[in-house]
Nucleic acid binder design. Structure first.
Length: 671
DNA sequence: GAGCACTGC
């Protein structure tokens, strides 16, 4: 009960004693519900934001746009909507909408606020995320993902059911947030969070709220480290041997790096005296199956210290308790986009100052902490202030399609907070035109463009669904597109690579990866139908997880694909597209893939590499493809990723002649 | 011969 603890240390034990003696029957001890309620009320009162409740209500009432800079732990996300509700912002039946970049945040915060309000989740307080709507007619405080609000805007461009929109975590500058802000600027009715937005909104008022964060001491190295993996290892062991108890969080760039540091930590520990070996390494990254991710949350055994090896998943998405030390080598793997080649790639770059700050803050959640930056302070000064917003680093085809559907025709003139390059916009317009989504006048085409905008998919996949209804293979394409839309379906841990390969062979199809994915999906369906008649949903999930594990499939990805499948199946049915299967006619399906993915066709070169026809780039088949060894003459692919090489992934063999036949607008016959 | 992180009525 923090409000009581503030009286000072000397007398607190005494007064506590007296209180109990005076009131031998303490309500809090008798009624746990009362105690919980009391605790929540006291917690709310203790939050830094509580002292400015009235002011916030007034500011929001008096300003169309308000920037609220709430530091970590200020309570803004949970309290502000309640303040506004109490201040009467929902009186005319309107709703307060709060957007979050991530689903898990929308869900957990909504649950917390419902509890604080003492209402059932889904009634006055609710949340809405893709595949999950826990709201009702009486919902007045609605948490949601920013992407979902954008989808809502397609149906109601003025967002007329909301009295206030709070865009939380706007400083993260996700593509969705940026598009939403541009849209809200048109609607001119918003309350924003984060600094530096004031100028964009024409000098909007800003309110600062103090946070609650413990101090973190920052340490730099004297010199630049030539090998940051080695420097990381040395620092881990140094902390382990010399510092007080507390877990260590290390930020690395990817799976490979994490696995090698994990191995090296174990090796070096063996060289230490036995009493000093009580250090446990726990990896976490997105592609790790969730049961393995959970290990980082388990407390270390008594006497042990945990060292968590993480990607930037631990920067914002996941909060791990018990962290007292952070090691930050100063690098991150980031997406980048080359509009000339139309290629996205992953490259390792230095973090920004803001990112370094965010990382060090992870050491000060529960008490004072320490952060070791593995570079000199002079290097920190040279870092960019903040990370380049994603909208300047990605393919814009989807953003443009959405904006067009929202009635924004002049994309080059749209008032983005930070405008993507002209080249990048033009390249994506060109792609949309080639896919048939835009007319010669650059307007959304009817019906294709409108249908594509309605589907929650990459434009190229939306186009594939529309074409598939004409090729009589929509059932197969729905599965394909769902499987292509999720993270990697196959999971092959290094130590069981051979087993995983054998498992994958059961599904593999000589035509290529697309039909292989269809086989996996259908096998999971058959398994479920055979094994789970009459079982509960939880039992179903559990039995499917087991099947996935046996087959080296990432169950989280497969479940996600099944959700996407049922959603887009609903979408195409609503559009009236013809749902049919091509049965055993693989040729028909492969021709449809060629017609859909003609922009991503590639031809084999004498030395076994491929030349992508649209961009002229030399690429290689990714080793995870079923066609890695077969190397057919002509292929279509879905993903081009630059890591050590330019790799293409998700590939199907096609006949070269189909291109001119099925995409004559692009490939005219030259011979 | 190899996989940053998020997300979408």
């Amino acid at each position: 009960m923090p409000s009581m603890a503030q009286g000072g240390l000397r007398n607190s034990a005494d007064s506590h004693h007296k209180l109990r003696a005076k009131f031998p029957v303490d309500d809090r001890k008798v009624d746990p519900a009362f105690s919980r309620k009391q605790k929540i009320a006291e917690h709310r009162k203790s939050l830094p934001i509580a002292s400015v409740e009235k002011r916030l209500g007034d500011e929001v009432r008096n300003n169309d746009i308000l920037i609220i800079v709430g530091e970590t732990g200020s309570g803004k996300t949970t309290q502000l909507p309640q303040f506004l509700f109490n201040a009467g912002f929902c009186r005319d039946g309107k709703t307060i909408g709060i957007t979050q970049p991530r689903r898990v945040a929308a869900v957990t915060v909504a649950k917390r606020v419902a509890e604080e309000c003492g209402v059932e989740l889904g009634q006055r307080v609710g949340y809405s995320i893709r595949f999950e709507d826990v709201t009702s007619g009486s919902t007045r405080i609605k948490y949601m993902t920013d992407g979902l609000l954008l989808r809502e805007a397609l149906l109601d461009p003025y967002l007329s059911r909301y009295s206030v929109i709070i865009v939380d975590e706007a400083h993260e500058r996700t593509v969705h947030t940026d598009v939403l802000l541009g849209l809200l600027k048109n609607v001119q009715k918003a309350s924003l969070d984060a600094r530096g937005f004031s100028e964009y909104f024409g000098g909007a008022r800003a309110v600062h709220i103090q946070g609650r964060q413990f101090p973190v001491d920052i340490f730099y190295t004297h010199h630049a480290e030539p090998d940051y993996v080695d420097a990381t290892l040395i620092t881990i062991l140094q902390i382990h041997l010399e510092e007080r108890p507390g877990d260590i969080l290390v930020f690395l760039t990817g799976q490979e790096e994490i696995e090698s540091v994990e191995r090296l930590v174990k090796e070096r520990l063996q060289q230490l005296p036995e009493g000093s070996r009580k250090l446990l390494a726990a990896p976490i990254f997105s592609a790790l199956p969730s049961e393995k991710q959970m290990r980082v949350f388990a407390p270390a055994p008594a006497g042990f210290r945990k060292v968590i090896l993480a990607t930037n998943i631990a920067e914002t998405s996941v909060t791990i308790p018990g962290i007292r030390y952070v090691i930050d080598p100063g690098f991150v793997k980031a997406r980048s986009y080359d509009p000339v080649k139309g290629m996205e790639s992953l490259i390792i770059v230095p973090t920004s100052k803001a990112q370094a700050l965010q990382r060090s803050g992870r050491a000060g959640r529960e008490g004072p902490g320490k952060c070791f930056r593995l570079y000199p302070e002079s290097e920190f000064e040279k870092l960019d202030d903040s990370t380049k917003p994603e909208i300047k680093r990605c393919n814009l085809a989807n953003v443009i399609l959405q904006l067009k559907a929202l009635g924004v025709d002049d994309i080059l003139g749209f008032d983005f907070m930070e405008k993507p390059s002209r080249a990048s916009i033009v390249k994506s317009l060109e792609q949309l035109f080639l896919l048939g989504a835009l007319t010669d006048e650059c307007k959304l085409s009817d019906p294709v463009g409108h249908q594509m905008a309605q589907l929650p998919l990459d434009p190229i996949y939306s186009r594939a669904l529309i074409l598939a209804s004409q090729f009589n293979c929509l059932e197969e394409m729905l599965i394909t597109v769902a499987m292509l839309s999720v993270e990697s379906i196959f999971y092959a841990p290094r130590e069981k690579l051979e087993e995983a390969r054998t498992a994958m062979k059961c599904f593999s199809c000589p035509e290529g990866d697309h039909l292989t994915l269809v086989n996996v999906y259908r096998a999971s369906n058959e398994f479920l139908e055979k094994r789970t008649v009459g079982l509960s949903k939880e039992k179903n999930e559990k039995i499917l997880r087991k099947w996935c594990k046996e087959n080296f499939i990432n169950s989280r990805s497969l479940r996600h694909a099944r959700d996407v499948h049922s959603q887009i199946r609903g979408n195409v049915e609503q559009m009236g597209l013809r749902l049919a299967s091509c049965g055993d006619d693989m040729l028909q399906f492969c021709r449809c893939l060629a017609a859909s993915f003609f922009l991503n066709a590639a031809l084999k070169q004498p030395e076994g590499t491929y030349r992508a026809l649209a961009s002229g780039q030399v690429v290689q088949i990714h080793p995870s493809s079923v066609l890695f060894r077969a190397k057919p003459e002509c292929i279509v692919f879905n993903e081009l990723v630059q890591t050590n090489h330019k790799y293409i992934r998700n590939i199907t063999k096609i006949d070269y002649l189909w291109l001119a036949e099925l995409a004559p607008q692009y490939y005219c016959m030259q011979n």
